[in-house]
Amino acid sequence: MGFKLLSKLLVYLTASIMAIASPLAFSVDSSGEYPTVSEIPVGEVRLYQIADGVWSHIATQSFDGAVYPSNGLIVRDGDELLLIDTAWGAKNTAALLAEIEKQIGLPVTRAVSTHFHDDRVGGVDVLRAAGVATYASPSTRRLAEVEGNEIPTHSLEGLSSSGDAVRFGPVELFYPGAAHSTDNLIVYVPSASVLYGGCAIYELSRTSAGNVADADLAEWPTSIERIQQHYPEAQFVIPGHGLPGGLDLLKHTTNVVKAHTNRSVVE
């Protein structure tokens, strides 16, 4: 069995187990497998329904001669939608809004960016022009300005110390501490036991640490421990890039980060 097929099978099995364990909360999309990078042309966006009122959005972007996937989250909030992270750029984010209108038909009224990198804030200006209120932590807003990236308009308070959590509509926002970046936030959907790890969490097929220019490698494993301790009931975990899975993604990420750190020390 090929690795790609095995990865998709694991996603399907995880979703099936969740649907059985929580039949009222989960209505997993039966329309197909989780979209992969090879299936999404740059400039297009796919939506994948995880649970009743919960979707991931998947886009792709060219970077350094390669094409990478990027995940975000959409959560229903009454007759409105909360968006977590842009679709990595203005063109993708405009396509995301169009796809949401086509498939869901509810307005996106608020959006949260989970850290300051372009795959999370690139497209904020498109959201703002569409009347979406954009939010991020003060740290993310400051770092985005320093980096020359787009800056969300509103500040999220109460997320300055490791372990801080605040309720934001249908989700809980959690600051686990520094990891992929010093400002990275985690998003949890309690009604569906869905954990969105953003770039602080890796997919299972990833074996290298990737972009760690703004990471705190020493603190990252401790931050992941905080996530595990705060959300032990999480059933569906979405990484910032690639295929979702279960809580095993947290341990896998820790292993990859520690291996990278150990290699760096040896070198």
Rank of each mutant, 00 (worst) to 15 (best):
29 D>W: 13
143 L>A: 11
250 L>Q: 00
36 T>L: 06
34 Y>W: 10
35 P>Q: 14
135 Y>F: 10
193 S>F: 09
61 Q>D: 07
224 I>S: 05
66 A>H: 07
221 P>D: 14
183 D>H: 02
265 V>T: 14
125 D>M: 12
134 T>Y: 01
190 P>E: 09
252 H>W: 09
118 D>G: 09
197 G>T: 11
146 V>Y: 13
4 K>R: 04
185 L>D: 01
208 S>Q: 11
251 K>F: 15
160 S>V: 13
3 F>I: 05
39 E>C: 09
15 A>W: 06
199 C>M: 00
39 E>Q: 05
13 L>D: 03
175 Y>V: 10
20 I>K: 14
139 S>L: 10
216 D>F: 12
30 S>A: 11
204 L>E: 09
241 H>W: 00
5 L>N: 04
125 D>S: 11
43 G>A: 10
224 I>D: 00
140 T>N: 03
185 L>Y: 02
132 V>I: 05
64 D>V: 07
5 L>E: 06
207 T>V: 13
10 L>A: 06
205 S>D: 06
35 P>R: 11
163 G>E: 13
44 E>I: 06
74 I>R: 01
41 P>Y: 14
167 R>D: 04
51 A>P: 01
150 E>T: 13
203 E>V: 03
93 T>A: 01
15 A>C: 12
172 E>T: 15
102 K>T: 13
110 R>N: 12
259 A>E: 09
241 H>C: 00
237 V>I: 13
180 H>A: 00
194 V>D: 00
34 Y>K: 15
225 E>M: 14
21 A>D: 12
176 P>F: 01
50 I>L: 08
103 Q>H: 13
182 T>M: 15
38 S>H: 06
70 S>G: 04
2 G>V: 09
109 T>N: 15
146 V>I: 07
159 L>W: 04
128 R>Q: 09
17 I>G: 04
265 V>R: 08
207 T>K: 09
26 F>L: 08
256 V>Y: 14
223 S>R: 03
203 E>L: 01
158 G>Y: 12
210 G>M: 11
10 L>C: 09
196 Y>N: 01
28 V>Y: 15
220 W>N: 00
37 V>I: 07
218 A>T: 13
243 L>F: 11
45 V>R: 02
220 W>A: 11
103 Q>T: 14
123 G>E: 02
105 G>F: 15
148 G>D: 11
116 F>W: 15
43 G>K: 14
76 R>M: 13
53 G>W: 09
127 L>Y: 13
162 S>E: 13
30 S>D: 15
110 R>C: 04
11 V>F: 08
147 E>I: 08
2 G>M: 15
264 S>E: 07
2 G>S: 07
171 V>D: 02
187 V>Y: 01
187 V>A: 08
104 I>N: 01
179 A>C: 04
70 S>H: 04
226 R>W: 06
119 D>N: 02
216 D>P: 10
149 N>W: 12
149 N>A: 09
187 V>G: 06
72 G>Y: 02
123 G>N: 03
214 D>K: 11
87 A>D: 00
267 E>K: 09
247 L>W: 08
179 A>R: 02
218 A>L: 07
109 T>D: 11
68 Y>V: 07
49 Q>T: 07
178 A>T: 12
167 R>L: 07
223 S>L: 03
231 Y>A: 05
261 T>C: 11
71 N>V: 08
41 P>Q: 10
32 G>Y: 08
222 T>V: 11
75 V>K: 01
225 E>C: 06
34 Y>S: 08
167 R>F: 14
219 E>C: 04
69 P>E: 05
99 E>N: 15
35 P>L: 13
262 N>F: 05
178 A>R: 10
183 D>Q: 00
175 Y>C: 02
257 V>Y: 02
66 A>Q: 07
76 R>S: 08
160 S>N: 14
153 T>N: 07
191 S>G: 11
215 A>T: 11
73 L>M: 06
213 A>S: 11
10 L>P: 07
259 A>W: 09
181 S>K: 01
159 L>A: 09
29 D>H: 10
174 F>H: 15
225 E>V: 11
143 L>Q: 07
199 C>E: 00
96 L>Y: 00
10 L>K: 14
86 T>M: 02
135 Y>V: 01
127 L>E: 01
